[in-house]
Design a binder for these strands. Structure first.
Length: 579
DNA sequence: GCCGTTTTCGGCCCGACTGTTTTCAGTCG
């Protein structure tokens, strides 16, 4: 199953990191690349292996004879000797330590050799004691940076990124639905609200035979510890490090339970207050008549819709339930008609093997068709991002020629637009000439360097890029990587104002660890009338599924279809962009 | 270690930035 793919991916990536520590040339890259591919593979590696053995494994891009054998060894024994011997040489928790930004394999090695530091806790202790700064080649600033990195890695805590958790949740739901006598299964909580990070998972079910579903749940192969198991509730810790609660609720209370466990807590508190004012009381079993301190008959509870209705309000989509004004809107029947899953007609940020993507333009087009998209924009990196083999004017033009050819081939199936993810340089200028940019259908720009400029300078830089008449979209506007890198210091009000003034679109990058813009900025855009795009930032053919997380983020930001330009047909979308 | 519109061997992942240096190692994208 998918979880095994991820595990294999982690093992390979770790081998890569250890090899990098030994200063091996090329090999680390090969392992990392294979790890990436396997992590986003749709098919289970185990199935591939069962079907065709090592030979079939080698069909996976980036997997050759050696890595195929490594995978085989892992599938058979659950171990990888190569990794074990590498770990013996330098017994550090490398995957934990390299979560700290600015800390790579070489520094980890030095810190281990000089101070014996093997994990995050020891690293923090050493840094706080000022021991890091004394290591040759290190200094005060390095120590400070590492300390800041540790702080950031720690706030990540046990919360997991929505896009990383969702596939697992779906799998659990699917398994539980298959059990006999199970009528409904749905994950509630922050998963249902699509918060950007998830602390734990709450699954609700209606079942005729609670015992059976409880038993099946705690016996799932990934369960490492069962913390509770009763008649209606079971809790278990899963091997991927998260607690999952399963509750079986009565059929007539399903809606009330869903509401209660979906939250947010603040939303529920307001609803309960409202209920009291209207002569009801609301709990996880239903909405009851409540007069003179006496609880009477249940008037709603089977569905959320009937509860909201009885309270005299519109249904509130789960993504909006954060008590930030949605209750008032629902009472006035002014809940916006949110952009919906499946509304997107195109994707405006797609990388290919011309730079750091893993698939050709053609493969990405095919995958996009499968995803139900009608158009995509190819937006490979530009030359300042040297590591990706970023395109210069000449190669970018060359790419547009290939796109012309492919458009003939794909005519009637999908439209491939010419674009770029052009680097914004330190001064806000771009690294592709205006002349070439003018020839593209969609020009996206983004910050990939100088992340720590002071707010004034950073804002001016980004605004200057938006002022370029060729620039259509600001990609991943704040540059944050959840749990890894803070957002660049932008005056977002100024950026949104500049977007309005210049007609620049702000992107909601749906790549799971980005989801950038955040919900609060999306709301500001909606209020300001600034248009947005929801893009997958796909680097592999399998990545188009990320669009879903962009849509959920947009919904959290109250965005409607009219706010999202790639929910529009291609002509209308292109017509909106700067001329 | 992988891969083949530059090749079954010899290319790939290179330039900029940071922080530490005083000529460069490490990290990032």
């Amino acid at each position: 199953m998918a979880e095994l793919n991820q595990k294999i991916s982690e093992v390979l990536s770790e081998v890569g990191k250890f090899l990098a520590m030994q200063k091996e040339p090329w090999k680390p890259r090969a392992y990392e690349k294979a790890a990436e591919t396997i992590n986003s593979l749709e098919e289970d590696v185990e199935d591939i292996y069962k079907r065709g053995g090592v030979k079939a494994l080698q069909e996976i891009p980036g997997v050759g004879a050696s890595i195929a054998e490594t995978i085989e060894e892992y599938l058979k024994t659950g171990k990888v000797k190569k990794l074990e011997s590498l770990e013996k040489r330098t017994p550090v928790n490398l995957s934990e330590l390299s979560r700290v930004e600015g800390l790579g394999p070489q520094k980890v090695k030095k810190i281990y050799q000089k101070l014996g530091v093997t994990n995050l806790a020891e690293l923090e202790k050493a840094a706080k004691a000022g021991k890091l700064a004394k290591i040759p080649g290190f200094g005060k600033k390095t120590e400070e940076n590492i300390l800041r990195g540790i702080g950031f890695a720690k706030t990540a805590g046990n919360r997991s990124i929505l896009g990383h958790t969702m596939p697992k949740v779906r799998l659990l739901e699917e398994r539980l639905r298959k059990i006999k006598g199970v009528e409904a299964v749905l994950a509630a909580g922050s998963v249902r609200r699509c918060k950007e990070t998830i602390g734990d998972i709450d699954i609700l079910a209606i079942a005729d035979n609670p015992t059976e579903i409880m038993d099946a749940f705690v016996k799932m192969p990934e369960v490492v510890n069962v913390t509770a198991k009763g008649g209606t509730k079971a809790s278990a810790r899963f091997s991927w490090g998260m607690d999952v609660d399963l509750r079986v609720v009565p059929r007539e209370s399903y809606g009330a339970a869903l509401m209660y466990f979906t939250g947010s807590k603040d939303h529920n508190v307001v609803l309960r207050g409202l209920a009291l004012k209207k002569g009801y009381t609301l709990n996880e079993y239903g909405l009851y008549v409540f007069k003179g301190g006496v609880k009477g008959k249940m008037v709603a509870g089977k569905t959320e819709e009937e509860i909201y209705k009885t309270l005299g309000m519109q249904f509130i989509p789960p993504e909006m339930r954060e008590n930030t004004g949605e209750v008032e809107l629902a009472l006035q029947h002014k809940i916006p008609k949110l952009v919906d899953y499946g509304d997107l007609e195109g994707d405006l940020q797609v990388q290919t093997s011309w730079t750091d993507g893993g698939n050709s333009i053609e493969d990405m087009a095919k995958a996009a068709i499968k995803q139900g998209l009608k158009y995509i924009t190819i937006t490979d990196h530009t030359k300042s991002l040297a590591m990706t083999g970023g395109l210069d004017d000449k190669r970018l033009l060359k790419q547009t020629e290939e796109i012309d050819k492919l458009n003939k081939k794909f005519a009637g199936k999908i439209k491939i637009l010419k674009g770029t993810e052009c680097d914004i340089l330190k001064d806000g200028s771009l690294d592709i000439s205006d002349e070439v940019l003018a020839k593209l259908d969609v020009v996206g720009v983004s910050v990939h360097s100088h992340f720590r400029l002071p707010q004034k300078e950073q804002t001016a830089r980004v605004v200057r890029a938006m002022e370029n008449p060729n620039v259509d979209i600001l990609f991943h506007p704040t540059g944050r990587i959840i749990h890894k890198r803070e957002a660049i210091d932008l005056d977002m009000d100024a950026v949104i104002h500049a977007a309005k003034r210049t007609g620049t679109v702000l992107e909601i990058d749906a790549y799971p660890d980005r989801t950038d813009l955040k919900d609060e900025y999306i709301r500001k855009c909606v209020e300001a009338g600034v248009k947005m795009s929801i893009d997958s930032d796909a680097h592999l053919a399998q990545h188009f599924v990320f669009l879903e997380y962009g849509v959920s983020q947009a919904r959290r930001g109250f965005a409607e279809k009219t706010d999202i330009i790639n929910a529009w047909p291609v002509e209308k979308m292109l017509g909106f962009l700067k001329k």
